[in-house]
Nucleic acid binder design. Structure first.
Lengths: 175, 175
DNA sequence: TAACCAGATGATAATTATTACCATCTAGGA
DNA sequence: TCCTAGATGGTAATAATTATCATCTGGTTA
């Protein structure tokens, strides 16, 4: 299977392009274009580290020392909501455990966060043949499929048809 | 690609088997076999919910009302270390963000938790063709490859050869 | 251009999950 | 049966995130 580390040399051009489009995309998503948001997306686009909120905040503060950590947290979530960023750690809220040791993967409902096991023997076979990846020594892997479960899908469909038309972005997942 | 939800009917037999082997496996892993550990693995094996520590604790307390939540947290981590359980949320400690919106996946070092992007166009193509999975509506997916980065792999190798031979289980990741 | 206001921010308190600590207990070997 | 390394319970401490709220400002409208 074709499988390779992303070339870091592509980053500057990609970041520049995304930054150029950022203001327009904010407006499209119904967001004000603030200096904080621009500073935060800039740091994120320039980083290869998949950083945490505190690291982004520290980097932003080099230019804008007044920025609040709460703003950074809020902004990152907001950017994810309008699709300008992606949270790598979908289920980071709390640790979840699995007693099933047989090779398997997971489907996760993005709303209620229920998880079910899935089997993909073909994928397991392909990955079992890989022991290194660039400078990394491969130990294992796990595919996480993001989905809506039956119940949450039904709710979303009902809201879409019978809804009162209020801003969709406001809907928070019911933890 | 073969890809299906795991059949829940298999669980009872699997759980019984694992439970029967549990004491022996604890000893093999250098762990005492305590009533708490047995109660915790039993709850975990009987659950399809990929539960959190507090849910496991609540279930355990139905039989052993005295069990501490701290013990449940510790035990779950310990079970993962000897390979009797698996943490679904490898990177749950804190949220990590990514500004790269092009389809890609991640390699994660299990020691230092550094993350690098990888591309697997073939996998993306396969998954893009899937819009439902049992009762789930598929939205996206993310493969997480667990690995050792160059630096951490080198450290581990040095410890293995020149080490003082103390219990490997004790080594905690340096956050 | 000026005035307005919904939404954004900063500062800080509150919450939540997890880990640290330590006195006590116990599994399992001598 | 005795002993001790390791396990546990109870609780304090920590760390990440979210909530709250007074203030501010981007962007629309008059």
């Amino acid at each position: 299977m074709e499988l390779q580390l992303v070339n870091e040399r592509r980053r500057p051009a990609y970041a520049a392009q995304r930054l150029a489009e950022f203001a327009e995309r904010c407006r499209a998503g119904g967001l004000a274009v603030t200096p904080q948001r621009i500073a935060i997306i800039k740091v994120l686009l320039d980083s290869a580290e998949h950083p945490r909120a505190d690291a982004i905040c520290a980097a932003v503060r080099k230019q804008h020392p007044h920025v609040s950590l709460a703003t950074v947290h809020r902004t990152l979530e907001t950017l994810c909501e309008i699709g300008e960023a992606r949270k790598v750690t979908m289920l980071h809220d709390s640790a979840r455990y699995d007693g099933n040791l047989t090779p398997h993967h997971h489907v996760v409902c993005i709303k209620c966060r229920c998880i079910r096991d899935i089997e993909i023997p073909q994928l397991d076979r392909i990955l079992a043949g890989r022991s290194e990846l660039g400078e990394f020594t491969v130990l294992g892997s796990s595919l996480e499929i993001h989905a809506l479960c039956e119940r949450c899908g039904a709710k979303a469909a009902k809201r879409a048809t019978g809804g009162v038309g209020r801003s969709q972005r406001k809907q928070k997942s019911s933890k």
